[in-house]
Nucleic acid binder design. Structure first.
Lengths: 232, 232, 232, 232
DNA sequence: GATGAATGAGATTTCATTCAT
DNA sequence: TATGAATGAAATCTCATTCAT
């Protein structure tokens, strides 16, 4: 997420919405936003105390409420920023054609990197759903957005698949794997995991890779190559 | 979920520990546990009020604390039950050999059904991590457990794969997909989703594998069969 | 106001509404209600601190909110009680016939006494209007209620007067005089003030009083003249 | 209302005291005073936010405190202006002689008009008493002032009445009726109400009105009877 | 074994006022 | 002269837990 003061233009909580902020105000707003991002990520929505946030931002309680109308409002602002970043990435999803595999692999890496930044915050998203259905919807929309983009690519690369279901399943896989890696639940090196994700995606989309014109010996070689990425 | 009278668990000073419960007590305990399960699932850990739980169980606050030393204690008890159920399922994971595909497909269905019961509660698990690292560990252990069991099967079915990473990625996929289906984020019918999960798992494990003795025409057919399940 | 525990049956704040209170709860409720009445009377709505009230009632903050959902809720409950008492008195307003003058005088005294009890609270009513229009309406309705009852009596005693306007003006007089007396803004003895109120009311309604033994012609003319200005 | 530049008042350290204000400063001061008048009237003392006032005046918080040392200071300044206006009116109270009835009626109308301007502010006066006894005294003094003036007139017109009590009761009536009319609690037309007020006042002071051509015996007796009840 | 009343620490939020530019 | 940012004490309200019956 670009956390520059001018991130969403006038964005910030209700109290500042519509007002023009001077340089000092912009800096303060950014500090509060940053503090919120990190405190929410560490503790989750409920366990995060406004007190923790203002201490992290080194501002007073009064200042906090000058920029955000409530703790929930701040959460929404942070979430919006995260969502923006994620959606931007979803749009950059490359084609799934065989020839573009390196591009897809690179994209996975970007995804991973983004997850390293936002993963801990994303984890808290479900908590906030309870109190604000709009925030919940945003989260849901994110998954849908990724699935939609991926489905388009699947459809182009393998027209006879159920693109919707396949895309959805693959997004689940990619997202959750990144989540586990980020939260240290997986000890496997990230690079390897990305290889596996790419390989599984490829085999799901292209099935048994066999150049149609190849002779029967080739398949074995191909399969070996395909398996290679899954090797330890 | 095993709702043994002497659940006790590992958490601090469960009031019922050591006591023998008569029939009436058992019924009350069960009511509180059930209420907790459903309230936690609906609202999450923090948003769940002890008041909500006692109302749902139709007992008094005093009674609640006769059976559980704290809200956290109850959460732990519920979580333990869920974990027990999940681990039991993990143990029943069938082989991934081609011939056992129907068995795996059936297992996926069981997984799905279990998720329908516990999915909403599982979602709340991450919240509680913050306050009790033991609960967090239990959650993490669950994933590890599934991965471990799946890795064993992968290793048996495709010895040359990086079984650890592959299993982990597949578990992520299966789990998260079930989660999304359960939380209505996916409109696709469950049966289809299971077919896709089975297909992706198969192609990931077996790749474009070709029995050496097959003639060259077969691969195409195989690939077609593989894709068939992904078709809309 | 009858501040017995059973005052409004289940009345008390929202939290207790509908619940059955045991003896102890009833006593506590009454204590909070009493404390609220006196603290509001002393300080007004805004300057009254919940802290003042709980100290006066010798209960904890938690207990306060067990019986009333908010400070405003308590205010409403007190106001309701006061309104009930006042309306009851309005209903007992005697006839304004000459022969019932002593009864009216006695009623004024009752009014005065009621004002001694509730006057200081009534003063605070306007403050609360700002935040709760319903409370404001209740206050307004009180004046209307008194006017309505008095108008009925005026109409019976002097059919050709504009009963509505006359009643309204007289209620204003009686109410505000009592208010000032209660708030020590008047040093005049209460008894005297009541005499004056009774006299002004009488002359307003009956015009010039003429001893019975007078000739019959004059009185009629006099009364007619007196009433003329009050006609609608 | 007298809005002198050097209003200062009696309250603590008015920032403008001693300073000479230029044209611009005068305009700003006037804007703040006007804003305060209307915001206090709308919301009352406590519910009025300094923020509301500065927004209404279109000045900054800093500017507000350049002219008034506190919210209370501004309230005092507004109150002072209102009091000045009211006292001026009290001084113009005409005689209550029969022949001056039209003058009295006209005065009532002026009173009414003044109330239309200040009534909503006067309502808030009682709130502020709590925090500043001086403000409370000013309010009380106003009533006293009116009573004093009216008592003088009563004494002149009907020497044998208890002028003090009578005047007080009549002031209560006039004031409160205007208040209710102003606050729309009375649906009666203003003109009619003024007629009734004049009539009640007249009959209270003069008792039965008797055409001048009547014989001299009766009036005295009648008046005596009427006045009897008003005697101290 | 069970109940409902009571507790109080602690959380969020408000808002008059001051400060720096 | 004016501005808008910042302050922080204090207010209201919450809710897991304990107590008395």
């Amino acid at each position: 997420m670009s956390r520059t003061p001018a991130r969403g233009g006038a964005r910030g909580g209700a109290p500042t919405r519509g007002r023009e902020l001077r340089a000092r105000g912009q800096r303060t707003l950014a500090r509060v936003l940053d503090a919120g991002t990190s405190v929410f990520a560490d503790r989750g929505y409920y366990a995060a105390r406004v007190d923790d946030i203002v201490k992290a931002a080194d501002v007073s309680h009064g200042t906090f409420y000058r920029y955000f109308s409530s703790k929930q409002d701040l959460f929404g602002a942070v979430a919006e920023g995260v969502a923006t970043d994620m959606v931007a990435l979803a749009r950059e999803l490359p084609s799934l054609d065989r020839d573009d595999e390196p591009a897809f692999r690179a994209w996975l890496e970007q995804f991973h990197r983004l997850y390293e930044r936002h993963g801990r915050f994303l984890r808290t998203w479900t908590e906030a759903e309870v109190i604000d259905s709009e925030i919940g919807r945003t989260a849901r929309d994110l998954v849908t957005e990724f699935s939609r983009h991926l489905a388009t690519r699947v459809r182009a690369a393998a027209p006879d698949l159920d693109a919707g279901a396949a895309a959805f399943v693959l997004v689940s896989m990619i997202e959750r794997t990144s989540y586990y890696v980020q939260s240290r639940q997986l000890r496997v090196a990230a690079a390897e995991t990305l290889d596996v994700l790419a390989a599984v995606t490829r085999s799901a989309v292209h099935g048994a890779r066999r150049p149609a014109h190849r002779d029967s010996a080739a398949p074995v070689a191909t399969a070996a190559a395909g398996r290679a990425v899954l090797r330890s």
